[in-house]
Design a protein around this nucleic acid. Structure first.
Length: 124
DNA sequence: CTCCTGACTCAGC
DNA sequence: GGCTGAGCCAGGA
């Protein structure tokens, strides 16, 4: 999908943050009660080899003007690896539980059931 | 400017 | 079957 920031994406300053916006945008499009992995987003953005960048971009998510449901983003195993980066280490789990997502021991149960692949959903 | 680290993932042992 | 190493890009010290 084309980004609406095409005009604001000019190289006036830096084009690096483009990657960040893409990540946030995808994450924002995650339906309620669904989750995705860094690798899925990374692959969707074409940086499949750098899933770290996705998670790293998430660390800057709260810095963004627009809120990003980073709690819906987990690692490939469904583990809430980034819960410690939230306001509280339990906020992520609680948010997921509110989404009717089963979380046990910092890990999402039946991840494939809640899994939401951007390259699949947004591609269709 | 160089080195290290990081919310990941895969391959190898 | 669990641990380690390497690859990825970007930013901070």
């Amino acid at each position: 999908m084309a980004k609406a920031t095409s005009s604001a994406e000019q190289k006036t300053k830096k084009e690096s943050f483009t990657f960040f916006e893409d990540v946030y945008e995808v994450v924002r499009q995650i339906p309620k009660g669904r989750v995705t992995s860094y690798g899925a987003i990374a692959k969707f953005l074409g940086t499949k080899l750098s899933a770290r960048m996705v998670g790293w971009a998430m660390s800057a998510a709260p810095q963004q003007t627009k809120k990003v449901p980073a709690h819906r983003v987990v690692n490939r195993n469904g583990m809430l690896t980034g819960k410690h980066h939230f306001a509280t280490p339990t906020s992520m789990e609680e948010l997921l539980l509110k989404e009717k997502i089963k979380v046990k021991d910092e890990t999402i149960i039946e991840l494939e059931k809640y899994f939401w692949d951007p390259s699949m959903e947004l591609s269709l």
